[in-house]
Measured scan of single mutants.
Amino acid sequence: TIDDAFRAIERAIQAENEGRYREALKHFLDGGEMIVTAAEKEASQKVRNLLLHKGKEVLEWAEHLAEWILE
């Protein structure tokens, strides 16, 4: 659900702030994927587009974090 997705993102932010970057990455990926999944089930085109945009933002952040971890 969207609530689960945002809880995962909150955990990711907390982990990132505490320097637990790999854990943060996992939570960002989980949250982003949950948002995209919820968007695919959404009946309203406007809400679907907003959710897809937010999911994409979260997944892009996860990608940047992963690249930073690997440096």
Results as ranks from 00 to 15, higher is better:
65 L>N: 00
32 G>A: 15
62 A>W: 07
37 T>M: 11
17 N>R: 13
52 L>I: 08
63 E>F: 10
19 G>F: 03
36 V>P: 01
57 E>T: 10
53 H>D: 14
58 V>I: 13
28 F>G: 01
8 A>F: 12
61 W>L: 05
22 R>Y: 14
42 E>M: 13
71 E>D: 13
24 A>R: 02
68 W>M: 10
1 T>P: 08
52 L>V: 04
14 Q>L: 09
25 L>D: 00
9 I>Y: 01
1 T>M: 13
32 G>W: 15
20 R>Q: 05
8 A>E: 13
27 H>E: 07
22 R>S: 10
71 E>N: 10
21 Y>G: 01
15 A>E: 06
32 G>I: 15
33 E>S: 12
69 I>C: 11
17 N>G: 08
63 E>C: 14
14 Q>F: 05
5 A>M: 06
64 H>V: 06
8 A>P: 00
31 G>E: 03
60 E>I: 08
22 R>D: 10
40 E>L: 15
67 E>I: 08
29 L>F: 07
4 D>A: 07
12 A>K: 01
55 G>A: 15
32 G>T: 09
28 F>S: 01
16 E>P: 02
13 I>Y: 04
47 V>D: 05
57 E>R: 12
53 H>I: 14
12 A>F: 02
1 T>Q: 06
43 A>S: 12
21 Y>P: 01
1 T>N: 11
62 A>V: 06
35 I>D: 02
25 L>K: 01
21 Y>N: 01
42 E>P: 02
15 A>M: 09
68 W>G: 03
13 I>L: 07
22 R>T: 12
62 A>Q: 00
46 K>D: 13
9 I>G: 03
19 G>M: 05
66 A>N: 08
43 A>C: 12
37 T>I: 12
64 H>G: 05
42 E>C: 14
71 E>I: 09
66 A>F: 09
11 R>L: 13
52 L>H: 05
37 T>Y: 06
25 L>M: 06
6 F>M: 09
68 W>T: 04
2 I>K: 03
70 L>E: 15
70 L>I: 14
34 M>W: 09
46 K>V: 13
52 L>T: 05
24 A>Q: 04
35 I>G: 03
62 A>P: 00
29 L>V: 07
28 F>W: 15
38 A>M: 14
23 E>T: 03
70 L>P: 04
22 R>N: 12
65 L>H: 00
45 Q>H: 08
59 L>R: 06
23 E>C: 08
68 W>Y: 12
13 I>P: 00
33 E>W: 15
30 D>H: 09
54 K>C: 15
5 A>S: 02
24 A>K: 01
22 R>I: 13
31 G>H: 05
8 A>L: 15
51 L>M: 04
33 E>A: 15
1 T>H: 09
38 A>L: 15
20 R>E: 03
18 E>N: 08
43 A>K: 14
25 L>T: 00
16 E>D: 13
27 H>P: 01
30 D>W: 13
57 E>S: 07
30 D>E: 14
18 E>M: 07
48 R>Y: 04
67 E>D: 12
57 E>W: 11
49 N>S: 10
19 G>S: 07
64 H>Q: 09
7 R>H: 07
41 K>Q: 10
10 E>I: 15
66 A>M: 06
33 E>H: 15
53 H>V: 12
57 E>I: 13
11 R>S: 06
32 G>Y: 15
5 A>K: 01
7 R>S: 08
39 A>L: 12
46 K>W: 14
57 E>P: 00
18 E>V: 08
52 L>P: 05
16 E>S: 15
33 E>Y: 14
17 N>W: 11
23 E>V: 03
34 M>K: 11
30 D>L: 14
23 E>W: 02
27 H>D: 07
34 M>A: 10
4 D>G: 07
7 R>W: 03
41 K>I: 07
19 G>K: 02
36 V>H: 08
45 Q>D: 13
60 E>V: 04
66 A>D: 03
15 A>D: 02
15 A>C: 12
64 H>W: 08
12 A>I: 07
35 I>M: 14
23 E>D: 12
16 E>F: 15
29 L>H: 05
47 V>W: 07
49 N>R: 05
71 E>H: 09
58 V>P: 00
7 R>Y: 03
9 I>T: 00
18 E>W: 06
2 I>T: 04
19 G>I: 03
18 E>H: 05
17 N>D: 04
59 L>M: 08
67 E>Y: 10
40 E>K: 15
21 Y>A: 01
6 F>C: 14
12 A>D: 00
34 M>F: 05
3 D>Y: 12
6 F>L: 09
1 T>L: 15
45 Q>T: 10
43 A>G: 08
9 I>M: 03
5 A>R: 00
38 A>F: 08
57 E>Q: 15
8 A>G: 02
14 Q>H: 11
34 M>V: 05
4 D>Q: 08
41 K>D: 06
63 E>S: 13
34 M>H: 03
47 V>G: 04
63 E>L: 13
27 H>T: 02
35 I>C: 08
63 E>W: 12
66 A>P: 01
69 I>L: 10
56 K>S: 05
50 L>C: 14
65 L>R: 00
52 L>Q: 05
